[in-house]
């Protein structure tokens, strides 16, 4: 080694020798700080769009969604998302925010479910704007901002969804042999540089669940929890998991109960 190393050279050398992971973490931290600027969250625009859409008379029945019951009674949106998923008597099943939206769009507005499901998510590859479903979910969820995550666990179906949801969390299938637990059952794990939530770590899972729906910078749109479930399954190389399906609702029930007591901080902003 040359003896006349400059201070600058030494610094560079020290940095180069520092654990590459640590350097990665620093830039990730800066990035996260930028993401935490709430006023700059483009998700608010999507929430406004969702509100307008929610109050517009649409569909074959020319009705708005204002009488939709998210569990606290027709039209009662304030705090409703904070108490989802829950059992609904009319559909006789546990529903999350997205599957309940589908119910209201079909029963109140007369839309055809299969027709709605043809376009669930904005395609980030083509810079698409959020779909109506995504806007609506963002708006309804935001009405629980600042409230505690408090899904009910009284009805046997709610207990069942949580329990079977956890069992499904450990279910390994597909060509990668993955389950959700492969990535999300230990502290401090990463895929590449992306940190992974440990759903058995209370703080970790609360931080995650309290910030969905979330504006995803890399997608340029607001994503909801159903999209997150689909995205993980897609990466696991399974077929597309069906929107609002029993497996997604059971999983989301499990995850939401793990995060119980956290405080919704919406809309979130993530990579």
């Amino acid at each position: 080694m040359k003896r006349n190393l400059t201070v600058k050279g030494l610094t560079a050398l020290t940095l180069a020798l520092a654990a590459p992971v640590a350097m990665g973490e620093v830039s990730v931290e800066e990035y996260r700080a930028m993401l935490a600027d709430k006023d700059a969250n483009p998700g608010f625009l999507v929430i406004d769009q969702g509100e307008a859409l929610y109050k517009t008379k649409r569909g074959p029945k020319n009705a708005s969604l204002e009488k939709c019951d998210f569990g606290l009674g027709p039209g009662k949106l304030k705090g409703a998302y904070a108490q989802l998923p829950r059992y609904f008597k009319d559909t006789k099943r546990v529903q999350d925010i997205e599957s309940r939206l589908l119910t209201c769009m079909t029963t109140l507005q007369g839309f055809d479910e299969a027709e709605i499901k043809k376009k669930l998510y904005a395609d980030q590859r083509y810079n698409e704007s959020n779909t109506e479903l995504e806007m609506l979910a963002a708006y309804v969820a935001y009405q629980s901002n600042g409230m505690k995550i408090a899904p009910p666990l009284k009805h046997p179906a709610e207990k069942e969804a949580q329990k079977v949801g956890e069992a499904y969390f450990w279910n390994r299938h597909g060509p990668m042999d993955f389950s959700c637990a492969t990535c999300h059952a230990e502290d401090g794990k990463r895929v590449r540089l992306q940190g992974l939530v440990n759903v058995y770590n209370k703080k970790d899972i609360q931080a995650t669940m309290s910030t969905w729906p979330t504006y995803r910078v890399s997608h340029g749109v607001v994503r909801n929890m159903q999209h997150r479930m689909w995205d993980c399954h897609w990466q696991m190389r399974t077929p597309d998991i069906d929107y609002g399906s029993p497996a997604t609702v059971a999983l989301i029930s499990f995850l939401t109960h793990q995060a119980k007591g956290g405080t919704y901080d919406l809309p979130g902003m993530k990579r």
Partner: peptide, 15 residues
């Protein structure tokens, strides 16, 4: 529980 998960999977993916 495994049987319930199988049922869940069978009703949650569409061919």
């Amino acid at each position: 529980l495994s049987a319930k998960v199988d049922k869940l999977v069978a009703s949650s993916f569409k061919p």
